[in-house]
Structures are given as C-alpha cells and as structure tokens.
Amino acid sequence: MNREAGRTSDAGLDDAALVAASQKGDQAAFGEIVRRYQRAVHRLGWSLTRNASDADDLAQETFVRAWGAIGRFEIGSPLYPWLARIVTNLAFSLFRTRRRRPETSIEPLVEAGHQWGTDDDPADHTVRDEHHAMLRECFGALAPEHQAVLALRVMQDLSYDEIASTLNVPIGTVMSRLSRARADLKRRLAERTGETS
C-alpha cells in the first residue's frame, strides 16, 4: 500500500547496519536513516496534526530525538515502529500542550491545488475537497489514541503487531481501539452529513 519504499536498505546497508553505524557516531549513516524514513514520518506527522508547519516540526523533532536515543535502540528491532512511536508521543504531547484540536490550515488545500491535473474538473475537486475536509475534521475530533491507531493502520499500513509495538499496548487493545475509532469516525461523519448510520 503506502509502505515506505526502502524500508529495507536499497543501498546495500540494511537498517540494522545503519543503526549500528549511527550508534558509533556515524552521522552519514543516520542521515541515510533520515532519508529513508522521512516521508513516512512526515506523513504520519501530518496525519496527526493536519498542519504542514506542525508536521514539519514533528518530523524534524522525531529525528532529533531519534539521534539522541539511538544509543539505546536495540539493533535488529524494526526501526520504523520506533520512529512512529516517537512521532505519536510527540503528537500526543502537542495535543496536551495546546489543549485544542489541530488548527485547520489552508495549506493542505493550496498544496492539494498544486496536485490537480489540468484535465480535472474543478467542480469535482470542490466536492471532493469538501468531503475530505469534513472527513479530516471528523478525524481530528477523535480521541488522540484513536487518531494514532487509525493513522498507523490506514495511512502507514502497519500490522497490528507493529501498531502494538509503536503504541506500547497489547494487540487486543489495538483491535478494540481500531474498531471503536472506525465506529466513532463513521458516526461523526454521519452526523455531519445528516445521514443515519
């Protein structure tokens, strides 16, 4: 699906080797880790904040924290769930700090506009954007842990095991949270659109 390409090394070095080199202070190796996971990390950050500025801060902070903590990383463990855990923890911290839902930014619309094809019908885009904006709002109204589990599953296509590792919860909790998150999202969307669920 949207698995980050190159999760395993395409350049001859796998994640474990990069981590081992990073633990020895090899900044180039860590730079390779950054380049390898920057898109996935940024995407997760944007999913949780839906704000380009916050997503950028989150992504950068994630790698800064990862560099500071990579000495404690156990070589051989999957790297991305560890990075995703940093992202979600930072996002939760951001939620708690702001005590408000992430701001709705016009940047996604502007940026989405750049992706429009020249042969697309602007009217279709308008309807589609309204639906996506509504869905984003409903998603943003979910509980933070529900947002995280949905983002990790739907956007990152992580397995239940990986999600459990990322969020440091049992697999059963992942299953129940996903179920409740989907049901809650469906209910909120139905309330917004006036449909009966």
């Binding site: 949207n2 730079g31 950054v34 380049r35 920057q38 898109r39 940024h42 995407r43 944007w46 999913s47 839906r50 380009a52 997503a55 950028d56 992504a59 950068q60 790698f63 800064v64 560099w67 996604p108 940026e111 750049h114 992706q115 639906h131 996506h132 904006a133 869905l135 984003r136 998603f139 949905l150 983002a151 739907v154 956007m155 999202l185």
Partner: peptide
C-alpha cells in the same frame, strides 16, 4: 480517510530535510 489524510509537500521539501535535521 487515506486520501483525506494524504499529503505530499513535494520533493523539494524532502531533498533538504535531512540537512535541516
């Protein structure tokens, strides 16, 4: 939802991302 939350800041953003980090 996947489409709604999809976001690509562009290649230029990622080219310099590692340096910024």
């Amino acid at each position: 939802l996947e489409k709604s939350l999809a976001h690509d800041p562009g290649e230029a953003y990622f080219e310099s991302f590692a340096d910024r980090v």
